[in-house]
Design a protein around this nucleic acid. Structure first.
Lengths: 123, 123, 123, 123
DNA sequence: GTGGTCTAGACCACC
DNA sequence: GTGGTCTAGACCACG
Protein backbone atom coordinates (compact mmCIF):
# COMPACT_ATOMS: atom_id res chain seq x y z
CA UNK A 1 0.00 0.00 0.00
CA UNK A 2 1.44 3.30 -1.06
CA UNK A 3 -0.58 5.72 0.98
CA UNK A 4 0.55 9.07 2.28
CA UNK A 5 -1.68 11.09 4.56
CA UNK A 6 -1.50 14.57 5.97
CA UNK A 7 -2.87 15.32 9.39
CA UNK A 8 -2.93 19.04 8.78
CA UNK A 9 -4.85 18.94 5.52
CA UNK A 10 -8.45 20.09 5.54
CA UNK A 11 -9.34 16.95 3.61
CA UNK A 12 -10.52 14.25 6.03
CA UNK A 13 -8.05 11.43 6.48
CA UNK A 14 -10.51 8.77 5.33
CA UNK A 15 -11.08 10.79 2.17
CA UNK A 16 -7.37 11.04 1.48
CA UNK A 17 -7.17 7.26 1.70
CA UNK A 18 -10.18 6.79 -0.55
CA UNK A 19 -8.72 9.14 -3.13
CA UNK A 20 -5.41 7.32 -3.27
CA UNK A 21 -6.72 3.77 -3.34
CA UNK A 22 -9.31 4.73 -5.92
CA UNK A 23 -6.69 6.32 -8.11
CA UNK A 24 -4.51 3.20 -7.90
CA UNK A 25 -7.40 0.98 -8.91
CA UNK A 26 -8.49 3.22 -11.75
CA UNK A 27 -4.97 3.47 -13.09
CA UNK A 28 -4.65 -0.30 -12.97
CA UNK A 29 -1.92 -0.29 -10.35
CA UNK A 30 -4.16 -2.42 -8.17
CA UNK A 31 -5.47 -5.35 -10.16
CA UNK A 32 -8.81 -7.12 -9.83
CA UNK A 33 -9.18 -9.48 -6.87
CA UNK A 34 -5.99 -8.27 -5.29
CA UNK A 35 -6.29 -8.60 -1.53
CA UNK A 36 -6.03 -5.32 0.35
CA UNK A 37 -4.03 -5.40 3.59
CA UNK A 38 -6.01 -5.79 6.85
CA UNK A 39 -7.35 -2.54 8.20
CA UNK A 40 -5.41 -3.00 11.42
CA UNK A 41 -2.18 -3.18 9.47
CA UNK A 42 -2.97 -0.07 7.49
CA UNK A 43 -4.06 1.74 10.63
CA UNK A 44 -0.87 0.94 12.47
CA UNK A 45 1.35 1.81 9.52
CA UNK A 46 -0.35 5.18 9.06
CA UNK A 47 -0.66 5.66 12.80
CA UNK A 48 -4.35 6.37 12.61
CA UNK A 49 -7.47 4.80 14.07
CA UNK A 50 -8.83 1.53 12.72
CA UNK A 51 -12.19 3.24 12.49
CA UNK A 52 -10.80 5.71 10.00
CA UNK A 53 -9.46 2.98 7.73
CA UNK A 54 -12.72 1.10 8.00
CA UNK A 55 -14.56 4.24 6.96
CA UNK A 56 -12.38 4.52 3.86
CA UNK A 57 -12.89 0.84 2.97
CA UNK A 58 -16.64 1.32 3.32
CA UNK A 59 -16.60 4.24 0.94
CA UNK A 60 -14.63 2.23 -1.59
CA UNK A 61 -16.98 -0.71 -1.28
CA UNK A 62 -19.96 1.57 -1.67
CA UNK A 63 -18.39 2.94 -4.82
CA UNK A 64 -18.09 -0.58 -6.15
CA UNK A 65 -14.32 -0.51 -6.28
CA UNK A 66 -13.68 -3.21 -3.69
CA UNK A 67 -15.65 -6.06 -2.17
CA UNK A 68 -15.50 -7.70 1.23
CA UNK A 69 -15.40 -11.38 2.05
CA UNK A 70 -16.17 -11.77 5.71
CA UNK A 71 -13.30 -13.32 7.57
CA UNK A 72 -11.03 -13.25 4.54
CA UNK A 73 -10.45 -9.63 3.77
CA UNK A 74 -11.16 -6.99 1.16
CA UNK A 75 -10.40 -7.36 -2.52
CA UNK A 76 -10.25 -5.13 -5.54
CA UNK A 77 -13.46 -5.52 -7.54
CA UNK A 78 -13.21 -7.23 -10.93
CA UNK A 79 -14.00 -4.30 -13.18
CA UNK A 80 -13.46 -4.27 -16.95
CA UNK A 81 -11.13 -1.55 -18.24
CA UNK A 82 -14.12 0.21 -19.71
CA UNK A 83 -15.82 0.54 -16.33
CA UNK A 84 -12.62 1.97 -14.84
CA UNK A 85 -12.45 4.51 -17.62
CA UNK A 86 -16.01 5.54 -16.93
CA UNK A 87 -15.34 6.00 -13.26
CA UNK A 88 -12.28 8.02 -14.03
CA UNK A 89 -14.21 10.22 -16.39
CA UNK A 90 -16.96 10.72 -13.85
CA UNK A 91 -14.48 11.81 -11.19
CA UNK A 92 -12.70 14.14 -13.55
CA UNK A 93 -15.90 15.61 -14.87
CA UNK A 94 -17.23 16.27 -11.40
CA UNK A 95 -14.11 18.06 -10.29
CA UNK A 96 -13.73 19.91 -13.53
CA UNK A 97 -17.14 21.52 -13.25
CA UNK A 98 -16.27 23.08 -9.91
CA UNK A 99 -12.88 24.14 -11.13
CA UNK A 100 -14.15 25.89 -14.22
CA UNK A 101 -16.79 27.71 -12.17
CA UNK A 102 -14.12 28.85 -9.73
CA UNK A 103 -11.66 30.09 -12.31
CA UNK A 104 -14.35 31.80 -14.32
CA UNK A 105 -15.69 33.51 -11.21
CA UNK A 106 -12.26 35.06 -10.78
CA UNK A 107 -12.39 36.30 -14.35
CA UNK A 108 -9.89 33.94 -15.96
CA UNK A 109 -10.23 33.33 -19.67
CA UNK A 110 -9.90 29.91 -21.23
CA UNK A 111 -6.50 30.87 -22.58
CA UNK A 112 -5.27 31.97 -19.18
CA UNK A 113 -6.31 28.69 -17.60
CA UNK A 114 -4.58 26.66 -20.29
CA UNK A 115 -1.44 28.74 -19.91
CA UNK A 116 -1.48 28.10 -16.18
CA UNK A 117 -1.99 24.39 -16.67
CA UNK A 118 1.01 24.22 -18.98
CA UNK A 119 3.07 26.22 -16.56
CA UNK A 120 2.16 24.29 -13.43
CA UNK A 121 1.64 20.73 -14.62
CA UNK A 122 5.16 19.60 -13.92
CA UNK A 123 5.35 20.73 -10.31
CA UNK B 1 -25.27 42.75 -3.78
CA UNK B 2 -25.26 39.87 -6.19
CA UNK B 3 -24.95 36.91 -3.89
CA UNK B 4 -26.37 33.47 -4.44
CA UNK B 5 -26.05 30.81 -1.79
CA UNK B 6 -26.78 27.12 -1.74
CA UNK B 7 -27.90 25.42 1.43
CA UNK B 8 -27.15 22.01 0.02
CA UNK B 9 -23.55 22.73 -0.88
CA UNK B 10 -20.87 21.29 1.36
CA UNK B 11 -19.18 24.67 1.29
CA UNK B 12 -20.16 26.67 4.40
CA UNK B 13 -22.54 29.54 3.68
CA UNK B 14 -20.16 32.15 5.04
CA UNK B 15 -17.48 30.80 2.73
CA UNK B 16 -19.75 31.03 -0.28
CA UNK B 17 -20.39 34.67 0.56
CA UNK B 18 -16.69 35.34 1.03
CA UNK B 19 -15.87 33.77 -2.31
CA UNK B 20 -18.41 35.81 -4.19
CA UNK B 21 -17.70 39.18 -2.61
CA UNK B 22 -13.98 38.56 -2.96
CA UNK B 23 -14.38 37.76 -6.63
CA UNK B 24 -16.40 40.92 -7.19
CA UNK B 25 -13.78 43.05 -5.50
CA UNK B 26 -10.90 41.41 -7.33
CA UNK B 27 -12.63 41.78 -10.66
CA UNK B 28 -13.25 45.45 -9.96
CA UNK B 29 -17.02 45.11 -9.85
CA UNK B 30 -16.96 46.51 -6.35
CA UNK B 31 -14.92 49.69 -6.26
CA UNK B 32 -12.80 51.04 -3.43
CA UNK B 33 -14.67 52.63 -0.54
CA UNK B 34 -18.00 51.37 -1.78
CA UNK B 35 -20.26 50.85 1.19
CA UNK B 36 -21.43 47.27 1.58
CA UNK B 37 -25.04 46.76 2.60
CA UNK B 38 -25.67 46.34 6.36
CA UNK B 39 -25.24 42.82 7.58
CA UNK B 40 -28.85 42.72 8.74
CA UNK B 41 -30.05 43.58 5.27
CA UNK B 42 -27.93 40.92 3.62
CA UNK B 43 -29.03 38.41 6.22
CA UNK B 44 -32.69 39.06 5.64
CA UNK B 45 -32.34 39.03 1.86
CA UNK B 46 -30.49 35.72 1.90
CA UNK B 47 -32.70 34.44 4.70
CA UNK B 48 -29.79 33.50 6.88
CA UNK B 49 -28.58 34.57 10.30
CA UNK B 50 -26.92 37.93 10.85
CA UNK B 51 -24.09 36.05 12.48
CA UNK B 52 -23.33 34.13 9.33
CA UNK B 53 -23.05 37.31 7.29
CA UNK B 54 -20.90 38.88 9.96
CA UNK B 55 -18.65 35.87 9.83
CA UNK B 56 -18.18 36.39 6.10
CA UNK B 57 -17.52 40.11 6.56
CA UNK B 58 -14.90 39.28 9.21
CA UNK B 59 -13.06 36.97 6.85
CA UNK B 60 -13.05 39.64 4.17
CA UNK B 61 -11.78 42.23 6.60
CA UNK B 62 -9.06 39.89 7.79
CA UNK B 63 -8.03 39.36 4.19
CA UNK B 64 -7.71 43.12 3.82
CA UNK B 65 -10.44 43.36 1.22
CA UNK B 66 -12.87 45.44 3.27
CA UNK B 67 -12.65 47.71 6.32
CA UNK B 68 -15.16 48.44 9.02
CA UNK B 69 -16.18 51.72 10.54
CA UNK B 70 -18.16 50.83 13.63
CA UNK B 71 -21.53 52.48 13.58
CA UNK B 72 -21.19 53.45 9.95
CA UNK B 73 -20.82 50.29 7.96
CA UNK B 74 -18.31 48.23 6.00
CA UNK B 75 -16.48 49.47 2.96
CA UNK B 76 -14.38 48.03 0.16
CA UNK B 77 -10.71 48.57 0.96
CA UNK B 78 -8.79 51.00 -1.26
CA UNK B 79 -6.46 48.58 -3.00
CA UNK B 80 -4.38 49.43 -6.06
CA UNK B 81 -5.05 47.29 -9.16
CA UNK B 82 -1.69 45.64 -8.66
CA UNK B 83 -2.64 44.41 -5.20
CA UNK B 84 -5.89 43.00 -6.58
CA UNK B 85 -3.96 41.17 -9.27
CA UNK B 86 -1.66 39.69 -6.68
CA UNK B 87 -4.54 38.48 -4.60
CA UNK B 88 -6.14 36.95 -7.65
CA UNK B 89 -2.94 35.19 -8.60
CA UNK B 90 -2.52 33.89 -5.09
CA UNK B 91 -6.02 32.42 -5.06
CA UNK B 92 -5.58 30.86 -8.49
CA UNK B 93 -2.18 29.46 -7.68
CA UNK B 94 -3.38 27.91 -4.46
CA UNK B 95 -6.29 26.17 -6.14
CA UNK B 96 -4.28 25.17 -9.18
CA UNK B 97 -1.75 23.25 -7.13
CA UNK B 98 -4.42 21.00 -5.68
CA UNK B 99 -6.10 20.59 -9.04
CA UNK B 100 -2.97 19.51 -10.86
CA UNK B 101 -2.16 17.03 -8.12
CA UNK B 102 -5.65 15.58 -8.36
CA UNK B 103 -5.72 15.22 -12.12
CA UNK B 104 -2.23 13.80 -12.23
CA UNK B 105 -3.09 11.27 -9.54
CA UNK B 106 -5.83 10.02 -11.85
CA UNK B 107 -3.29 9.66 -14.62
CA UNK B 108 -4.33 12.54 -16.84
CA UNK B 109 -1.69 13.97 -19.14
CA UNK B 110 -1.24 17.67 -19.68
CA UNK B 111 -2.84 17.38 -23.11
CA UNK B 112 -5.89 15.61 -21.71
CA UNK B 113 -6.41 18.32 -19.10
CA UNK B 114 -6.15 21.07 -21.69
CA UNK B 115 -8.59 19.26 -23.95
CA UNK B 116 -11.04 18.98 -21.07
CA UNK B 117 -10.67 22.65 -20.20
CA UNK B 118 -11.43 23.63 -23.78
CA UNK B 119 -14.41 21.31 -23.86
CA UNK B 120 -15.93 22.35 -20.54
CA UNK B 121 -15.06 26.02 -20.18
CA UNK B 122 -18.27 27.31 -21.69
CA UNK B 123 -20.68 25.37 -19.46
CA UNK C 1 -8.88 74.11 17.66
CA UNK C 2 -6.06 71.80 16.73
CA UNK C 3 -7.84 68.49 16.49
CA UNK C 4 -6.95 65.61 14.26
CA UNK C 5 -9.14 62.54 14.09
CA UNK C 6 -8.82 59.16 12.45
CA UNK C 7 -11.87 57.37 11.16
CA UNK C 8 -10.07 54.07 10.96
CA UNK C 9 -8.78 54.04 14.50
CA UNK C 10 -10.40 51.70 16.96
CA UNK C 11 -10.61 54.58 19.42
CA UNK C 12 -14.06 56.20 19.20
CA UNK C 13 -14.04 59.58 17.54
CA UNK C 14 -15.55 61.32 20.56
CA UNK C 15 -12.77 59.83 22.66
CA UNK C 16 -10.10 61.07 20.31
CA UNK C 17 -11.51 64.57 20.66
CA UNK C 18 -11.70 64.32 24.43
CA UNK C 19 -8.11 63.15 24.62
CA UNK C 20 -6.80 66.01 22.55
CA UNK C 21 -8.78 68.82 24.18
CA UNK C 22 -7.97 67.45 27.61
CA UNK C 23 -4.27 67.33 26.79
CA UNK C 24 -4.35 70.92 25.57
CA UNK C 25 -6.05 72.11 28.74
CA UNK C 26 -3.73 70.16 31.02
CA UNK C 27 -0.66 71.43 29.23
CA UNK C 28 -1.92 74.98 29.54
CA UNK C 29 -2.35 75.49 25.83
CA UNK C 30 -6.00 76.26 26.44
CA UNK C 31 -6.32 78.83 29.20
CA UNK C 32 -9.09 79.20 31.75
CA UNK C 33 -12.35 80.69 30.51
CA UNK C 34 -11.29 80.46 26.90
CA UNK C 35 -14.38 79.99 24.76
CA UNK C 36 -14.45 76.76 22.78
CA UNK C 37 -15.75 76.95 19.23
CA UNK C 38 -19.42 76.03 18.66
CA UNK C 39 -19.99 72.35 18.25
CA UNK C 40 -21.47 72.89 14.79
CA UNK C 41 -18.26 74.56 13.69
CA UNK C 42 -16.10 71.78 15.03
CA UNK C 43 -18.39 69.18 13.50
CA UNK C 44 -18.24 70.73 10.07
CA UNK C 45 -14.49 71.24 10.19
CA UNK C 46 -13.88 67.63 11.19
CA UNK C 47 -16.66 66.41 8.92
CA UNK C 48 -18.33 64.47 11.67
CA UNK C 49 -21.73 64.52 13.30
CA UNK C 50 -22.70 67.27 15.74
CA UNK C 51 -23.79 64.53 18.09
CA UNK C 52 -20.27 63.20 18.27
CA UNK C 53 -18.81 66.58 19.18
CA UNK C 54 -21.52 67.10 21.75
CA UNK C 55 -20.66 63.76 23.25
CA UNK C 56 -17.03 64.85 23.58
CA UNK C 57 -18.00 68.18 25.17
CA UNK C 58 -20.20 66.34 27.67
CA UNK C 59 -17.36 64.09 28.68
CA UNK C 60 -15.09 67.07 29.18
CA UNK C 61 -17.72 68.89 31.24
CA UNK C 62 -18.28 65.78 33.32
CA UNK C 63 -14.54 65.65 33.96
CA UNK C 64 -14.68 69.23 35.18
CA UNK C 65 -12.42 70.53 32.45
CA UNK C 66 -14.98 72.77 30.74
CA UNK C 67 -18.25 74.40 31.70
CA UNK C 68 -21.29 75.36 29.66
CA UNK C 69 -23.17 78.62 29.69
CA UNK C 70 -26.47 78.03 27.95
CA UNK C 71 -26.81 80.17 24.87
CA UNK C 72 -23.27 81.46 25.13
CA UNK C 73 -21.04 78.48 24.59
CA UNK C 74 -18.53 76.29 26.36
CA UNK C 75 -15.51 77.55 28.25
CA UNK C 76 -12.36 76.12 29.73
CA UNK C 77 -12.85 75.66 33.47
CA UNK C 78 -10.78 77.88 35.77
CA UNK C 79 -8.51 75.32 37.32
CA UNK C 80 -5.40 76.12 39.36
CA UNK C 81 -2.15 74.69 37.99
CA UNK C 82 -2.07 72.24 40.86
CA UNK C 83 -5.43 70.75 39.87
CA UNK C 84 -4.22 70.34 36.30
CA UNK C 85 -1.13 68.55 37.54
CA UNK C 86 -3.27 66.20 39.57
CA UNK C 87 -5.43 65.39 36.61
CA UNK C 88 -2.41 64.76 34.49
CA UNK C 89 -0.93 62.47 37.09
CA UNK C 90 -4.19 60.60 37.40
CA UNK C 91 -4.37 60.02 33.65
CA UNK C 92 -0.77 58.95 33.45
CA UNK C 93 -1.06 56.67 36.44
CA UNK C 94 -4.15 54.97 35.07
CA UNK C 95 -2.57 54.25 31.73
CA UNK C 96 0.74 53.28 33.23
CA UNK C 97 -0.81 50.52 35.31
CA UNK C 98 -2.24 48.81 32.23
CA UNK C 99 0.96 49.28 30.31
CA UNK C 100 3.17 47.77 32.96
CA UNK C 101 0.84 44.80 33.28
CA UNK C 102 0.95 44.28 29.54
CA UNK C 103 4.70 44.48 29.16
CA UNK C 104 5.31 42.30 32.19
CA UNK C 105 2.87 39.71 30.87
CA UNK C 106 5.07 39.44 27.79
CA UNK C 107 8.07 38.91 29.97
CA UNK C 108 9.82 42.24 29.55
CA UNK C 109 12.15 43.33 32.31
CA UNK C 110 12.24 46.88 33.65
CA UNK C 111 15.50 47.45 31.82
CA UNK C 112 14.06 46.29 28.52
CA UNK C 113 11.11 48.62 28.84
CA UNK C 114 13.33 51.58 29.62
CA UNK C 115 15.58 50.76 26.69
CA UNK C 116 12.55 50.65 24.42
CA UNK C 117 11.28 53.97 25.75
CA UNK C 118 14.61 55.60 25.05
CA UNK C 119 14.70 54.11 21.60
CA UNK C 120 11.16 54.99 20.59
CA UNK C 121 10.45 58.27 22.35
CA UNK C 122 11.50 60.47 19.49
CA UNK C 123 9.32 58.86 16.81
CA UNK D 1 -4.60 26.42 31.61
CA UNK D 2 -3.88 29.48 33.67
CA UNK D 3 -6.50 31.89 32.44
CA UNK D 4 -8.14 34.62 34.45
CA UNK D 5 -10.89 36.71 32.96
CA UNK D 6 -12.69 39.81 34.10
CA UNK D 7 -16.29 40.40 33.17
CA UNK D 8 -16.09 44.05 34.12
CA UNK D 9 -13.14 44.85 31.90
CA UNK D 10 -13.82 46.76 28.71
CA UNK D 11 -11.57 44.30 26.92
CA UNK D 12 -13.69 41.57 25.31
CA UNK D 13 -13.44 38.22 27.03
CA UNK D 14 -12.17 36.43 23.95
CA UNK D 15 -9.43 39.06 23.67
CA UNK D 16 -8.40 38.55 27.27
CA UNK D 17 -8.05 34.85 26.56
CA UNK D 18 -6.07 35.49 23.39
CA UNK D 19 -3.71 37.81 25.23
CA UNK D 20 -3.00 35.34 27.98
CA UNK D 21 -2.55 32.24 25.83
CA UNK D 22 -0.42 34.22 23.41
CA UNK D 23 1.78 35.46 26.22
CA UNK D 24 2.22 31.93 27.54
CA UNK D 25 3.22 30.64 24.13
CA UNK D 26 5.59 33.51 23.46
CA UNK D 27 7.24 33.12 26.84
CA UNK D 28 7.70 29.42 26.20
CA UNK D 29 5.40 28.34 29.01
CA UNK D 30 3.33 26.46 26.45
CA UNK D 31 5.57 24.28 24.33
CA UNK D 32 5.16 23.32 20.69
CA UNK D 33 2.54 20.69 19.92
CA UNK D 34 1.12 20.84 23.42
CA UNK D 35 -2.55 19.98 23.25
CA UNK D 36 -4.79 22.76 24.51
CA UNK D 37 -7.77 21.72 26.61
CA UNK D 38 -11.06 21.23 24.72
CA UNK D 39 -13.02 24.42 24.23
CA UNK D 40 -15.94 22.96 26.16
CA UNK D 41 -13.72 22.34 29.15
CA UNK D 42 -12.29 25.84 29.11
CA UNK D 43 -15.75 27.29 28.68
CA UNK D 44 -17.15 25.45 31.66
CA UNK D 45 -14.15 26.26 33.84
CA UNK D 46 -14.34 29.96 33.03
CA UNK D 47 -18.14 29.84 33.07
CA UNK D 48 -18.46 31.39 29.66
CA UNK D 49 -19.92 30.26 26.37
CA UNK D 50 -18.18 27.70 24.20
CA UNK D 51 -18.48 30.18 21.37
CA UNK D 52 -16.41 32.75 23.19
CA UNK D 53 -13.57 30.30 23.74
CA UNK D 54 -13.78 29.16 20.15
CA UNK D 55 -13.52 32.77 19.07
CA UNK D 56 -10.31 33.11 21.04
CA UNK D 57 -8.91 29.88 19.62
CA UNK D 58 -9.72 31.12 16.11
CA UNK D 59 -7.78 34.31 16.66
CA UNK D 60 -4.80 32.35 17.92
CA UNK D 61 -4.94 30.01 14.95
CA UNK D 62 -5.15 32.94 12.58
CA UNK D 63 -2.08 34.42 14.24
CA UNK D 64 -0.26 31.17 13.58
CA UNK D 65 0.21 30.40 17.24
CA UNK D 66 -1.90 27.27 17.36
CA UNK D 67 -3.22 24.75 14.84
CA UNK D 68 -6.36 22.70 14.82
CA UNK D 69 -6.89 19.05 14.01
CA UNK D 70 -10.63 18.64 13.65
CA UNK D 71 -11.89 15.92 15.89
CA UNK D 72 -8.64 15.75 17.81
CA UNK D 73 -8.09 19.12 19.38
CA UNK D 74 -5.98 22.25 19.15
CA UNK D 75 -2.22 22.31 19.56
CA UNK D 76 0.50 24.87 20.05
CA UNK D 77 2.17 25.58 16.72
CA UNK D 78 5.79 24.44 16.32
CA UNK D 79 7.50 27.82 16.13
CA UNK D 80 11.24 28.34 16.42
CA UNK D 81 12.37 30.60 19.28
CA UNK D 82 13.28 33.23 16.73
CA UNK D 83 9.73 33.42 15.42
CA UNK D 84 8.42 33.76 18.96
CA UNK D 85 10.84 36.62 19.59
CA UNK D 86 9.66 38.34 16.45
CA UNK D 87 6.04 38.02 17.46
CA UNK D 88 6.84 39.39 20.89
CA UNK D 89 8.71 42.32 19.41
CA UNK D 90 5.85 43.05 17.04
CA UNK D 91 3.34 43.11 19.90
CA UNK D 92 5.56 45.30 22.04
CA UNK D 93 6.36 47.68 19.23
CA UNK D 94 2.72 48.10 18.32
CA UNK D 95 1.70 48.93 21.84
CA UNK D 96 4.72 51.10 22.48
CA UNK D 97 3.91 53.42 19.60
CA UNK D 98 0.51 54.26 21.04
CA UNK D 99 1.93 54.63 24.52
CA UNK D 100 4.64 57.05 23.54
CA UNK D 101 2.14 59.14 21.60
CA UNK D 102 -0.16 59.24 24.60
CA UNK D 103 2.47 60.20 27.13
CA UNK D 104 4.00 62.80 24.87
CA UNK D 105 0.59 64.32 24.20
CA UNK D 106 0.32 64.89 27.93
CA UNK D 107 3.67 66.63 27.91
CA UNK D 108 5.78 63.99 29.61
CA UNK D 109 9.49 64.03 28.89
CA UNK D 110 11.48 60.90 28.28
CA UNK D 111 13.01 61.20 31.72
CA UNK D 112 9.63 61.46 33.39
CA UNK D 113 8.39 58.36 31.64
CA UNK D 114 11.45 56.38 32.65
CA UNK D 115 11.10 57.55 36.22
CA UNK D 116 7.49 56.42 36.25
CA UNK D 117 8.39 53.05 34.79
CA UNK D 118 10.98 52.51 37.51
CA UNK D 119 8.52 53.56 40.15
CA UNK D 120 5.59 51.47 38.97
CA UNK D 121 7.16 48.37 37.48
CA UNK D 122 6.95 46.29 40.63
CA UNK D 123 3.24 46.78 41.31
C1' DG E 1 -14.81 12.31 22.45
C1' DT E 2 -13.33 16.40 19.39
C1' DG E 3 -14.13 20.85 16.58
C1' DG E 4 -17.23 23.28 12.63
C1' DT E 5 -21.34 25.52 11.47
C1' DC E 6 -25.63 27.79 12.02
C1' DT E 7 -29.52 29.64 14.53
C1' DA E 8 -32.26 33.16 17.32
C1' DG E 9 -32.05 36.53 20.39
C1' DA E 10 -30.11 39.76 23.50
C1' DC E 11 -27.41 43.91 25.12
C1' DC E 12 -24.09 47.45 24.32
C1' DA E 13 -21.33 51.34 22.12
C1' DC E 14 -20.97 54.52 18.48
C1' DC E 15 -22.79 57.73 15.03
C1' DG F 1 -29.38 53.55 12.20
C1' DT F 2 -24.76 50.85 12.36
C1' DG F 3 -21.48 47.01 13.97
C1' DG F 4 -19.39 44.34 18.42
C1' DT F 5 -20.02 41.00 21.82
C1' DC F 6 -22.01 37.27 24.27
C1' DT F 7 -25.39 33.72 25.23
C1' DA F 8 -27.70 29.02 24.85
C1' DG F 9 -28.63 25.44 22.14
C1' DA F 10 -28.68 22.65 18.13
C1' DC F 11 -26.89 19.58 14.34
C1' DC F 12 -23.13 17.68 11.71
C1' DA F 13 -18.50 15.54 10.44
C1' DC F 14 -14.44 13.37 12.04
C1' DG F 15 -11.79 9.99 14.85
Amino acid sequence: MDIVISNTSDVPIYQQIVDQIRAQIIKGELLSDTCLPPIRTVASELRISVITVKRAWEELEHAGLIYTMAGKGCFVAPLPPQALQEKRSALVQERLAGDMAYYKSLGLSQEEIIALVKKNYED
